[in-house]
């Protein structure tokens, strides 16, 4: 890794970053293996690359940044499921839990975060919380959606519950639901989507397609909906300037689908601003992303 050069980094900004870490209970030595190095150091190296107004923006956005580790997942799922009315769950003969996987990912066998959730949702949330005492025996997980068209094709009055850790624009979710709708749906099925964290625009997108969706935590766009930033237009232009200078892939400017997310789960969604997760910048140069997605 390149040696540090704090010439452009005011001591004030480092102290501010320290206080943000403290308020979020992040630690200097929290590891994020795909980025290399420790979290505080990587944040400082990111700030070193920025001008003072850019540092100020990233620090302000970081105050709103949400970071969840694996241990938070059952708690968030508990919160998300608590929003689904119990009377609604009770009316089904069976509840099948499935991961959200877009059809293109199914074809290439790519593992998605929804798979992590099946086990903990069935065996931790449904099994241990008294709220679900009357329905827990009806809950079963299905790792592969094709089972709905094979061994379970004769089912009736079932709830198909799709799970994911994060919904951004909602595009992946819609892809997955359309795939289910066209290939595996039976007329008595009902569908619900449950996510640990969701962007508000993703939930609006699902609602527009008449899908019920619940999330443990709903997030607004990081800059456009910010209550913290005094000048939204200026903040957007500063972020655009950073991204154009740092990255060549326009597809991820302001996050995939211009989602403006400020979220990192076990893996950081590409809906988050790329300064936080893209580890390769222009011309393949390393970028010191604090929550890197790729090596």
């Amino acid at each position: 890794m390149k040696s540090s050069n704090g010439k452009k980094l005011p001591t004030d900004s480092v102290v501010r970053l320290y206080e943000i870490f403290h308020s979020k209970n992040w630690h200097s030595n929290d590891e994020f293996p795909s980025s290399g190095g420790k979290l505080f150091e990587r944040f400082c190296r990111l700030l070193e690359r920025l001008e003072v107004d850019e540092q100020d923006l990233i620090l302000t956005l970081t105050e709103d940044f949400l970071k969840y580790w694996e241990l938070h997942y059952p708690i968030l799922m508990e919160k998300a499921l608590a929003r689904v009315p119990i009377a609604y769950l009770q009316k089904f003969r069976k509840i099948y839990l499935l991961p959200i996987v877009a059809s293109k990912d199914l074809e290439i066998g790519s593992g998605k975060s929804g798979h992590h959730l099946l086990y903990s949702t069935e065996h931790i949330v449904f099994a241990r919380n008294d709220r679900y005492a009357t329905i827990r025996n009806k809950v079963a997980q299905i790792a592969n959606i094709e089972a709905l068209g094979e061994s379970l094709s004769g089912r009736a009055d079932c709830l198909i519950m799709f799970l994911d850790d994060f919904i951004g624009t909602g595009k992946t979710t819609i892809d997955c639901l359309f795939d289910y709708w066209t290939k595996y749906r039976v007329s008595t099925d009902e569908v619900v989507v449950v996510a640990l964290v969701a962007q508000r625009q993703g939930l609006v997108c699902l609602d527009r397609h008449y899908f019920k969706a619940y999330a443990g935590m709903v997030r607004k766009r990081g800059i456009s909906d910010s209550q913290r930033l005094p000048d939204i237009e200026k903040a957007l232009s500063i972020m655009d300037r950073i991204e154009k200078r740092a990255f060549s892939s326009r597809k991820y400017y302001r996050g995939f689908g211009q989602c403006e997310a400020l979220v990192s789960m076990i893996r950081t969604p590409n809906d988050t601003f790329p300064v936080y997760w893209m580890t390769r910048g222009r011309h393949g140069q390393p970028w010191p992303a604090p929550f890197g997605r790729y090596m």
Partner: peptide, 19 residues
């Protein structure tokens, strides 16, 4: 003096030590 962090890094300190 509202200075940059550079003099501390020049002393060989890491950001973990600055923390």
């Amino acid at each position: 003096g509202r200075g940059s962090i550079e003099p501390l890094l020049k002393r060989g300190l890491t950001y973990a030590q600055v923390w």
